[in-house]
Amino acid sequence: MNNVYFSTVFVSISLSLFLILLANLFDFRNFTAYSKYSLTLICFIMIPTSTYAETVNWISGYTNYVFSMLIVFVYLLFIFKCIFDGYKPHRITAFLFLVLSFIGGLCVEHITLYNVCISVVMLVLTLKMNQKCCLHAAFFLLGAVASCLLMFFNQNYSNIYNEGDQIGTRFFILDMSDMMQNAFSNVALHYTKSFWFITIIVALSFSFIY
């Protein structure tokens, strides 16, 4: 019972923060005032049921995707605050982003690679604009690289790459055509099943155009 209570509180708080931070990323300059929260909630409601079941409703998927992206949102909003508002953070807080980046990078492979890419971009941006948060951006990159090395140098990945997955259905997709096919077969299918009427509207629209 304690686990149920803890997971309920954890998901409630973290998901609320996720939506609030995402809304602030949508409109960092606050042009739409409180409308940004309504727009974010509408986007959240329109998540396909299968995607929702594999991320928000499934606790393992939740920690992999929602919790890890929550860390990314915190970092991006911090960098934006430094760039656009001239915020000057204390140097000691850079260690916090080192820890957060390392933790977030160990959740799932997609976010691990995304953290490395976005941290490189943010570091270059802060250096170019001579911001006071360059140390924080560098520490976030350091944590992202450390988690990436720790994850992908694990022997399980080399075994899956060379011999295939002996336990589950994990595999590597390195060819661009395979990636596009996988995206069409899985991601696009989620949306067409949940929002079949959009598919009909698009088909009818093209029929009238041509």
Rank of each mutant, 00 (worst) to 15 (best):
M1Y: 11
S16F: 05
D175T: 09
L25M: 14
G143E: 06
E163Q: 10
L149F: 04
V4I: 15
L174E: 11
Y157P: 00
I201C: 11
L204R: 05
M176K: 11
V202Y: 07
I92R: 14
K88T: 15
L135C: 02
A23H: 08
E163A: 11
F95W: 01
A53N: 13
V72D: 09
F140S: 03
F140L: 07
C82L: 04
L149S: 06
V116K: 01
L189K: 11
T51Q: 09
A137G: 03
R29K: 14
F78L: 09
N24V: 06
F197K: 15
I13N: 03
G104R: 10
F171P: 02
F6N: 12
H110Y: 06
G164Y: 14
V4T: 14
M179D: 11
L98Y: 01
L123P: 09
I167V: 14
G86N: 06
V116Q: 00
A137W: 00
F73L: 10
I111R: 07
H136V: 05
A23R: 06
M129C: 05
C107H: 09
N159G: 01
T199A: 04
F197I: 15
Y5A: 14
W58V: 08
Y157E: 02
C43N: 12
H136K: 02
V9Y: 08
Y5Q: 15
T199P: 00
S7P: 04
F95Q: 08
L125N: 09
S147K: 06
Q155C: 02
V11A: 10
F10G: 04
N57Q: 12
F208M: 07
K88W: 02
P48V: 02
I209K: 13
S7V: 13
I209P: 00
V116E: 04
G143N: 04
S101F: 09
L76D: 02
S38D: 09
S185D: 15
V11E: 06
I118L: 13
L150T: 15
L135I: 11
Y75M: 05
V74L: 11
V9L: 13
E109S: 15
I160E: 06
M46S: 11
F172M: 04
C117Y: 10
Y52D: 03
L77V: 03
L39N: 15
Q131R: 13
T93C: 05
M122G: 01
L113E: 08
A137T: 09
I173Y: 00
V4E: 15
D175K: 10
Y157I: 00
M180N: 12
M176P: 12
L189P: 00
N24R: 12
F44C: 14
I79C: 07
I42G: 13
R29V: 04
M179K: 12
